[in-house]
Each structure stands twice: as C-alpha cells, then as structure tokens.
Design a protein around this nucleic acid. Structure first.
Lengths: 192, 192
DNA sequence: TGCCTGATTGACACTGAGTGCCACTCTGAC
DNA sequence: GTCAGAGTGGCACTCAGTGTCAATCAGGCA
C-alpha cells in the first residue's frame, strides 16, 4: 500500500546511501560513524538505524536485489547449455552495471579491504544461493538434492568473488568479464 | 622464546575456550557477554580481550591451524591425481577431528545459525586460500596465475561449507564424508 | 637473598554500535 | 476538524572494543 510514501522512502534511502558512500570513500569505512552519516544526511541517528541496521547494510544495500535478477537470467538460458556455462553467462550479465568506473573501483577496494564488509558480502551470497537454488536443482536433474545445487552455486559465487578480487587488485585494468571467464574455466579444468 | 610461558598461556587459552563454549551452548552465542565469560573464567574483561579480540574469535580459534595442515595434506597427494580429487581427499582428511559428536553438532548449529559467526568463518576461508595457493598453482601448471588457483580453492571451500551445512541440517545423521563427496561430485558434474 | 627489568594483568574511562521507550508530528480517512 | 497509524527524534541504556596507567609477577643477575 501507500505507494506515494514508499516512493519518498525509497528516495530518502537512495539519498542517504549516496551521502554515506561519499563519507566512506572520503574518510574510510571504519572511521565514519553513524553520527557522521546522520548529520550529513540531515536525519537523526535513531532514524538512520531504522533505515539500515548496520553500516555494512548501507554499502551492501544495492546488492540485495541482484539475487532474483540472477535467478531470472539463469532461467532464461537455453536448457541444453551446460550448467557451469550457463552460470558463467549469468554472472557476465549481472556484473554489467554501469556507473562511474573509478568510483566503482574505490568501492571495490573498500569492500575487499574492510574485513567486516568482506564478511558481510560473503554472507550476502547465501541469499543468492537461496534465490538460484530451484533453477539449478531443476537443471541438475531429479537425482540431485539441495546439497548438490548449493555446492554448485556456492562454487560459482566463489569464482565470482575471486574474479572480483583480482579485478580490484589489478585496479580495474583488466575487464572483469575476462577474469570471470578465466576463473570459471580454471574450475572446470580442475574438475576433469 | 620462553616456552614455559607459552605453555601456560596456551593452557589458559584452552581453559577459557572451554568455559566460553559451555556458556555459548547453554545461553546462546549472542546472549553471552564478554563479562559473563570473563567472570566464569576468573579473569578480567580486559585480559579476555587480550586473548581474543572478539567473541567470534573464541569460537573460531581452533580452526586457525587447519590451513597449513590442509596445505601439507595437499602436497602429500600424488602428483598425478586430478586436482579436484586431490582437494576432496584433503577435505576428507581434515574433517576427521574426533571429539564428542553431540557437542560438535551443537557447535555447528550455533555456527550456521549465528550470522556473525557464519560470516567470520567464511572470512577464515581466506586464510586457507592463502595457505593452499602455492601448491594449487603448482598443480595447475605454469599457464595459470593466482586468480585461477584462488577460484579453484574458493570453490572447494564453498563445497565444504555446503556439505557442512547439509550435515548440520541433517543433525549429523549422514556422515560428513558422504556429503563432501556428493558436493564435489556435483560440482565436477556441472562443469562438464 | 634481594634488586632490576620486562611482560602481564586488572581497573578505569571512553568511543561507537545497536536497541528500547516514549513523546511528537505528519498524513490520510472519515 | 478529529482520529488512527506510521514515522521521527531524543534519551537512556547495554555491550563490544580500545587506550592508559598503576600494580604485579617471573626470571636474570649481583
């Protein structure tokens, strides 16, 4: 209900994320306090906590919608495509979000360089895992259960993470798509 | 240096871990405070912080030594064994730590049921990754770099994690070795 | 034995995350 | 215009985590 309200709330959240990101990238993630963000965003600390339970949530907020998106992309892949290839193609699609490349790199560096953020982003993978599970299970066939599907998805996400880290370490000079492909190929190679 | 000292410090740490684990399993992880643990262990809160920087560290302490152990086990596998098979065999060896099964299950349930612990344990994987990297790189051959090796290791750890979660969900009624094998097989199957 | 030195410990104080509570305000419905 | 419901801000609180400093303990040495 109350779409008008939802719109303005969404706008407020987007606004806060922008302000907070600027602070994070400027002062560093750990050095930025909730008070700093609340003051910069012009809301009370208490309200900020109602939007985002933790500082990590502010950074990771935009990732939360990508799970279902990935699930849809996977369902759209042809049925005769090998699962590992299909997952690679899904990752190649998902990673393709625009935005300022330099800023994206700085955010990546912050993510991979801040232990608590890294940990929380790994935790986010669990949500992806749940989102992708049904379609992966279907493709694996009736002999496979949740475990098999979860193992494959978790491996794919692990490869994506490895590629992301390599991209960050290379300061974005190598296309992420190439690194993703390399990681998935290496895994396939190792398994034969 | 000072081996005598190190021995008694080690004993103290082991003692504290035991006390803390009892509290965690009794009251729950989140509900147990540093004050509780310090009081039960008979040391000051400040000293407890010197042993363990965070509550999560107390639980995860015993996992920290397994990275080098896994690296040694991998180096001991025959050179002509396929990498993925070798990694599975390493995991099968490592998981074989004795101890009370019921307690182990309760600890596992706590780990998989507490977000902050789950996140930190995923973070621990990064250390394993670093430990295993050289040997995996060697086995992948000269054409592969850090990314390829990291992707394969991260996938293996992801499979191990999926198996561990399945084991916990099954309340330990299925041998972890079986689940590990299933997970690794599923991944190999998906990649061909 | 008794002193010296270095490391550990415990007590205190402080910052910051995160939560509960309550009064205030805004908005839409009647 | 009033009422109900949801959001907001302020306050106080708990707990994690850190810096500081004085007290203490253990071992080396005269």
């Amino acid at each position: 209900m109350s779409t008008l309200w939802n719109r303005s709330r969404q706008a407020a959240i987007t606004e806060v994320i922008g302000v907070a990101m600027d602070l994070f990238l400027d002062k560093g993630f750990e050095a930025t306090t909730f008070d700093d963000i609340a003051a910069a965003a012009g809301i009370s600390r208490r309200s900020l906590f109602r939007y985002f339970g933790t500082k990590e949530d502010i950074v990771l907020f935009h990732l939360s919608g990508e799970g279902p998106q990935a699930a849809a992309a996977l369902a759209a892949r042809p049925d005769d495509e090998p699962l590992w290839t299909a997952l690679l193609n899904v990752m190649l699609l998902i990673e393709d979000h625009g935005g300022d490349p330099a800023r994206l790199l700085k955010i990546s560096e912050m993510m991979y360089g801040t232990p608590s953020l890294r940990a929380r982003s790994l935790e986010k993978h669990l949500q992806w895992q749940a989102d992708l599970l049904p379609e992966v299970k279907r493709r694996l066939g009736t002999t496979s259960g949740d475990l098999q599907a979860a193992a494959v998805i978790a491996s794919a996400l692990a490869c994506m993470d490895a590629a992301g880290e390599a991209w960050t370490r290379a300061a974005g000079t190598v296309p992420l798509g190439h690194l993703l492909t390399d990681a998935f190929d290496a895994m396939a190679q190792a398994a034969r």
